[in-house]
Amino acid sequence: MKKLVVKKIGLVVLATLVISVAAGFMVFAGKSITIKGSDTMLILGQRWAEIYMNQNPGAVIQVTGGGSGVGIAALINGSTDICEASRQMKNSEIDKLKERFNTTGVEIPVARDGLSLYLNEENKVSELTLDQLKGIYTGQVTSWKEVGGDDAKILLYGRENSSGTYVYFKDNVLKGADFSAQTQTLPGTGAIVNAISKDKYGIGYGGAAYAKGVKYCKVKKDAQTPGYEPTLENIKSGNYPISRYLFWYLRNKPTGETKKLVDWVLSEQGQQIVSKVGYFPVK
């Protein structure tokens, strides 16, 4: 009796091994394209992959996140075919790529994203200039009174310094200056929006997100120009001052299956998915 049980267990183990090895071979046998990078673009990449694989049976696309930096590192290491990045590659990274693969890489803008600023609905302030934003986030402006609101302390919310959004905001709004030490960093846009819905005097930045009790802050290029909300028209027309491209990076000019995928992503259908996910098409 006991022997039989042992035999059975052995059989099950053997079968599992055989199946997993076979499954491994099958994955390798298919033409698999790996996409890795920005967490901001993770959902977008997955949606693209899903629909593309539905339309092209046989195509295998693996999408993983980790962050723009992780994706670029993977591109340099050769462990991914396509890198998703919410920022441009730095010169130092391009140099490394050149060292390894003797190529400067191919940059393909695949979508546009407007970096939104969030305020509590009850806040009297509804628009800020880029200079005011810089003052607020570097810690020079500490009271809402200085920008036309109540006499209350400004509570700063932001993303972690490992996020592409952090780097983008620092480069484009703070012009490279450091964030104030008072900035509370939260994991993800969702957490930031939630915090602001509860903090009357909070301000935060992040990707597109919606929540009760939170409003978009209109952003003005300078004191003379009107303020714009991060809507499709404003971002497409370039009126909204804080918008960015989202990129795909490849080592070489795409060929074969990869080219087919890239062409499809840039096609009307691919760009429709961009709008559905909450970003803005490049064309």
Binding site: G66, G67, S68, G69, V70, A73, E160, N161, S162, S163, Q182, Q184, T185, P187
Partner: peptide, 19 residues
């Protein structure tokens, strides 16, 4: 006051730091 702890710093920043 808000604080930053040692463990949270590692968790938040190690993800994308240049090796």
């Amino acid at each position: 006051d808000s604080v930053r702890t040692m463990s949270a710093t590692i968790a938040a920043e190690l993800g994308e730091v240049v090796h």
